[in-house]
């Protein structure tokens, strides 16, 4: 493996993810700006978010100081050296931290001592799967802490919100999660929802939904309808941008379904803030950049 090539391009993936808000999210914010009342708090928040995106891109600065947990998703060819890939990914994370694209964001969970490079047990998160092609897909999400904290998992039936084991129950879980989050996840964000799975795979699958573009709709017709219903309903809560009141509480909702055991019906809701940092690239076998995925 040509280590230098890989490290350079993965560093660029991190840099761009941290500084350059994806165009689908920016378009979503523009749409939100049109729906907020002029001179309202919501309008001011969204306008500031758009200014911030332009400044970050123009001046090569991190969009948000909380660069969160870096979550890498790789799809690699059969027989690819994944140990080497993990090593270059860690190297790139450490370099991106030194250059100020990532905050020193990892601490020992017991002693509280900082790790200065963001390379530590459990960080960065790296998921690798095998694909049929000869190239490598590298996708990255920077998942901020505030939005991570408002993620939640429901075990249905849930009497408190009157949610049974059906899609109406899922809708209630999603709206309850948005209500509980108020402004704390930096609304307007995007929901990733997983129906089914176990406690661990439910969260994993719900976060994978953030790899989908805002324009992407679930292939299942009923789930697609529920996605848009949740966004519509959430915007009637009056929570608005940053929970300061207003019209836009969500930019999108992405739902996926898995299988489940008879005893369990989990609905897992993950939240990603408007500072939705997600980028991806296709790399050749030697680590050269082929194209950007987003």
């Amino acid at each position: 493996m040509k280590t230098a090539n890989w490290e350079r391009n993965l560093l660029d993936l991190i840099r761009r993810t941290s500084t350059d808000l994806p165009s689908d999210i920016e378009a979503g914010l523009r749409k939100a700006l049109r729906s907020e009342k002029k001179n309202s708090h919501g309008y001011w928040v969204i306008r500031t978010a758009l200014d911030n995106a332009a400044r970050a891109r123009g001046e090569d600065l991190p969009i948000c100081q909380d660069t969160g947990t870096p979550i890498f998703h790789f799809r690699v060819p059969v027989g690819f050296d994944t140990n080497a890939l993990v090593a270059v990914t860690r190297g790139a994370v450490s370099r991106a931290t030194r250059r100020g694209y990532l905050r020193e964001n990892v601490f020992d969970a017991v002693s509280g001592k900082p790790f200065y490079t963001n390379v530590a047990p459990g960080s960065p998160v790296i998921r690798i799967e095998q694909g049929a092609r000869k190239t490598v897909d590298a996708r990255l999400i920077l998942k901020g802490g505030g939005s991570e904290n408002v993620g939640t998992q429901y075990s249905l039936p849930d009497e408190r919100i009157g949610a049974g084991r059906d899609l109406e129950g899922v809708r209630r879980c999603a709206l309850d999660a948005v209500w509980k989050a108020q402004g704390a996840g930096c609304a307007p964000g995007v929901l990733g929802i997983c129906i089914g799975g176990d406690r661990a795979t439910g969260y994993e699958c719900s976060k994978e939904q953030f790899l989908r573009k805002l324009s992407d709709v679930a292939s299942d017709r009923e789930l697609a309808r529920l996605e848009s219903r949740i966004v519509r309903d959430s915007c009637q809560l009056g929570i608005g941008p940053m929970g300061l009141g207003g019209r836009t509480a969500l930019l999108g909702a992405k739902i996926a379904a898995m299988s489940r055991a008879p005893a369990s019906f989990f609905v897992t809701v993950s939240y990603l803030c408007w500072a939705f940092r997600r980028r991806g690239m296709v790399l050749g076998p030697e680590g050269g950049l082929t194209r950007w995925l987003y």
């Binding site: 500031t48 978010a49 200014d51 400044r55 991190p62 969009i63 505030g146 803030c273 408007w274």
Partner: peptide
């Protein structure tokens, strides 16, 4: 303050 608007 506006959450997320780090560089502003």
């Amino acid at each position: 303050a506006v959450g997320g608007a780090g560089c502003v």
